[in-house]
């Protein structure tokens, strides 16, 4: 607590963190170097691409770890003996409302992913919202109803594909003779200038992140809600 008096003043533009050359460079040069108005997305997906890629891997690992912790392998009889939490009656109001809301939520999630360059948003937020729409389906109906749309195998495939899309953009620039995740060289296989290629590659990377986050969020929920058996939700 004695360190509080050493902190910079509130909102000081000349504090060490704000006047550091790297931050200033991100603010002033992002638009020239990447043609993306949203600096947060540009720094997230381009300048700090390694960071974000391994954050995605961390999320993927967490999802796998939860399945490994909770899943019972083999003995199904002990699971079936457990009494159900309560019997679920179909409710007209909840059913109709969720049927209306879920497509709108998914459309909004796609907008957030695709428009992350120009407004707040991006892969993480859009992925979480997209996963929340499946969670809403599982909460309002049953876990089985959601499993019909997104079975577990497809979910895990999606999560892996997301990481691979991200790594694929990195490897693509590696193959074309640049550093890993240096998107500017990708203009050779895209109909764009090098600067626009960075912007378009960021969109691709965000889509990869969104795949993984969507899949893992729904996977974590369905494992936690069914105690690992994936049979019956809340």
């Amino acid at each position: 607590m004695s360190a509080v008096s050493d902190f910079p003043d509130w909102g000081d533009p000349n504090s060490p963190a704000n006047s550091y050359r790297l931050s200033q460079h991100y603010v002033t040069e992002t638009i020239h170097e990447t043609s993306v108005p949203n600096m947060v997305t540009a720094v997230l997906a381009d300048y700090r691409g390694y960071d974000t890629m391994f954050e995605t891997v961390v999320i993927f690992t967490a999802g796998i770890a939860i399945i490994g912790i909770l899943r019972r392998f083999g003995n199904d009889d002990k699971d079936a003996a457990k009494p159900t939490l309560y019997t679920k009656k179909p409710d007209l109001i909840i059913d109709t409302t969720c049927r209306l809301m879920i497509p709108i939520i998914q459309l909004f999630a796609l907008y957030v992913i695709a428009h992350g360059h120009h407004s707040p948003g991006g892969g993480f937020q859009g992925g979480v919202i997209f996963g929340a729409s499946f969670i809403l389906l599982a909460v309002s109906r049953d876990l089985q109803a959601a499993q019909k749309w997104v079975p577990e195998k497809r979910i895990l495939n999606l999560a892996g594909i997301g990481v691979l899309i991200y790594a694929g953009f990195g490897l693509g620039s590696l193959l074309l003779g640049q550093n890993f995740l240096d998107y500017a060289i990708l203009h050779k296989i895209m109909p764009a200038t090098p600067i626009e290629a960075r912007s378009h590659s960021m969109l691709g990377v965000e889509i990869g992140v969104a795949f993984t986050v969507t899949a893992i969020m729904f996977s974590i929920y369905s494992n936690l809600a069914s105690n690992g058996s994936m049979k019956e939700g809340l």
């Binding site: 600096m39 947060v40 954050e55 961390v58 993480f124 979480v128």
Partner: peptide
Amino acid sequence: FANPLPHVLMLTAIVV
């Protein structure tokens, strides 16, 4: 404009 660097680092920290 506000400093974007802490925002980026913390955005991933929330999801993790």
